[in-house]
Every structure is written in C-alpha cells, then in structure tokens.
Amino acid sequence: MLTSLRLLNFRCFESLSLELPEEGALFVGHNAQGKTSILEAVCVLVRLHSPRAKSMRPLMKFDASEFGIAGEGWERDLQVRHSRAGSKMLIDGEELKTQGEYLENGGLVVWMGNEDVELVRGSGGGRRRYLDFICSQLDQGYRRALSRYRRALKARNLLLKEPRLREDSIQAYTEILIEHGEYITSARQHVLTLLAPHLANTQKSVSGREEILAFEYQPGSGGSMVRAFESTAESERRQRQTLAGPHRDDFKILLNGLPAGDYASEGQQRTIALAMKLAQGDVLRSVGGKMPVYLLDDIFGELDPQRRNALMRYLPKSAQKLITTTNLDWMDQDLAGWSRYLVDAGSAKLEDS
C-alpha cells in the first residue's frame, strides 16, 4: 500500500503532498476541484495507466512543461516523470529502462467509478479495457503483446488504405497480428475463467439475491486467427480495414441467462458493474499475490443504502481504500475515524475526523 503521495504539475495541482493511512482516506469536495485527479495520480504511479486519458500528455498541468508523481509504497520510493521528451520511471532513485521493470516492483489497483455501468450497457471497447487492465496486472508479457499488436494493427490498416496494395507488407503485419493476437485472446479467456467463481459470490453479496451472473466470450477472430484472416481477405480489401482479431473481441454479460445490457434494470446494471470490479479485486489478490489498492471515485451518490453497505462490507478490511465524494451524508460510523481531506481548487487540506 501507499504511505505517501506527492504531485508536481499534475492536472490542476501545481504541487501536493499527502500522507496516506494504512486503511485509506476520504477526499471530499465539489465537482471539478481535483478529487478524481488524486486517484488518477495513484493509478499512474502504481500501474503507469490513467483510467481517464489514453496518453500521458493530458495529465500535465496546462502551463507546465513536465509533471511528476512520487510516493512511498511496498517499501520502495516510486517516481514517474513525464515531459515532451518522454517518460522516466524511478525506484529508490534509480531510473529503470522499461515499464515492465517498474511494474514488477509495484502494486495492484482496482478502479471503481460511476462510468463502470458502461461495462454492462456500453460498447465492447469498455469491456476489452476491463480485461486488458486485469491481464496486464497479472501477466507482464500481456502488456508487451498488446502494445505490439496495436502498432501492427495501425500499420496494417494504413497499408489497406493505400491505392495500390502491397500484399507482401500486409502479410508481414498479418503474421505479427496472429502471433500477438492469439496470446491476447488466450489471456483474456483465461481471466474470464478466473473471474467466473468470484462473480457468483460478488453478485450475491451486492444484490442480496440469488442471481446468476455469467460471461460469454466472443472472440473477434471466431476462434482461429489464421482462418479468420483467410475468410475476411476479400472484405478487408473492399472495406480497407482489418476485420478480425482481438481488437474486435467482446463478451456477453448474462444475468439469469439474459443479456444484462438489454434486460437488466438500471439498479441491476450498477450492481453488476460493482460485482465485476469486486471480482477483479478478488482475482488480483488470489492470483496476483498482492492486496490491491481500491480507488473508489465518487460512486456512493449513485448507490442506494443496501448496495452501498454491501460494497463496504465486501471490500477487504486489510485493503487500502481511497475514496472521493462530494459529501459525507452516506458515511457510517465505520469510516468516522478515517483521515479526511477537503479538496478545493487544486489543494487538499487534512480535516479533523
């Protein structure tokens, strides 16, 4: 777990220094004051990943040329710096050459936010990102395979758009997509298998009902990438884009055998999203071998008391939980002794608990 967090020119924060207690902390304030950015900084520091941005550049304060995040965690001093020249990652003052080296020495994260309901009713992209975030925390090779697949996919799509097709070059990238795509699909399917037993438990715990929650994987290659590329070759040349592969993977979410995105109520969809994130934490803990840090971004205003209480009861007592909220009306006595920070206009002040 993290014991401190320091920010420099990150989002709306010119500078910030926080002590983070073992059990966690509450960050209270109006919207657009910087609460979510604090949790985002933790996610970037621990996993080199932002749940809100596709690159590091938007994380930099608008008038700055670089940003820095640092903190003490897992008995190490962690630092991430980014400028227009690129990113640097340091552990105990020593700069590391690769992201993989950095991540091997860090912790695990579960991010929970209001947008999680889109896992149930949104497009397949959100569900792919859900799997990617779990897979990359459990398997260092997954992150590498996904990066190489994405670069090859971009290059292959550009080749398919050229007026005169260079089939040898297209085939070379096809082979790269097959190699890394099969790895990605296999890892995603494995994670869904790991999630299945935990989903049954988390769904029951949050809903308070005997509801059956299940996933049904839908590979974008139909099970064989080699055959998929053979069968889509003509359509690809006509549509000028790659039509098979894990960039088209998805999975159905079934509640009592029915598609949850179509048949579940708003309350049920939010419950399913909570169950999915809690199951993620269970898998990271049991397979990844470390207790993850739980980052809960302003989710309690959208939850009724039953689901709110069920969520707090299910979260591991020994896990560090960092929670943002606009008010404390929902808070029960179990959290009354927690450290509370008032976040306002890019500052965070520790309040008396």
Rank of each mutant, 00 (worst) to 15 (best):
F300T: 14
G141K: 13
Y294D: 05
A336M: 04
P21I: 05
G93L: 03
A152N: 08
N9Y: 04
L199R: 04
T3P: 04
A348R: 14
V117I: 15
T185I: 13
T271R: 02
I323S: 05
Q189F: 10
Q140D: 12
K97R: 15
R188E: 05
S147G: 10
K88I: 12
R240D: 07
Q241D: 02
D329P: 01
I323Y: 00
A25Q: 01
V191T: 14
F27L: 15
A152E: 06
R209F: 08
R128H: 07
G141T: 10
G181W: 11
I134D: 03
L96E: 05
R308N: 03
D116E: 14
Y341N: 11
L16N: 07
K277M: 05
D332T: 14
R313N: 12
K97T: 11
K290G: 04
A32M: 00
A260E: 07
P246F: 03
K321N: 08
R84E: 12
Y130R: 10
R11D: 12
A53F: 11
L328N: 07
Y149F: 14
K54V: 11
R308I: 00
L296A: 09
A53P: 03
H180Q: 14
D344R: 15
I178W: 08
R313M: 03
Y142S: 10
I299C: 00
G34R: 00
M60T: 12
R188H: 09
I323T: 10
S318I: 05
Q269T: 08
L303F: 01
V28W: 08
D334T: 14
G126Q: 12
P292G: 13
Q320M: 02
Y314I: 00
H30F: 10
G346L: 09
V42Q: 04
K290Q: 12
D298G: 13
N309S: 13
E14C: 02
D262V: 14
L303V: 09
A260L: 06
A336H: 05
N31P: 02
S136C: 14
V46D: 05
Y149C: 06
E118G: 06
R11L: 07
V28P: 04
I272G: 14
T36E: 01
R340C: 15
E118W: 11
Q218A: 12
K277P: 00
I184G: 11
A145L: 08
A260V: 11
T326P: 07
G220L: 10
Q268Y: 05
F62H: 11
D249S: 08
L177E: 09
S186N: 13
W330R: 02
L158K: 14
L20E: 00
I323R: 10
R127S: 03
P21Q: 04
D132Y: 02
I323K: 09
L311K: 05
D298P: 03
E40Q: 07
V44Y: 00
L153E: 14
A244H: 06
L322A: 08
F215S: 15
D77L: 04
L350E: 06
E234L: 12
Q280R: 11
F10S: 08
S224K: 08
S15M: 06
L39I: 07
D297R: 06
L45A: 04
M60N: 01
T325W: 01
S339T: 15
V120P: 12
G122N: 08
E94S: 13
R121I: 14
A273S: 13
I91L: 05
E210M: 09
P246E: 09
E236K: 00
A187K: 15
D132V: 08
I134Q: 05
E351Q: 15
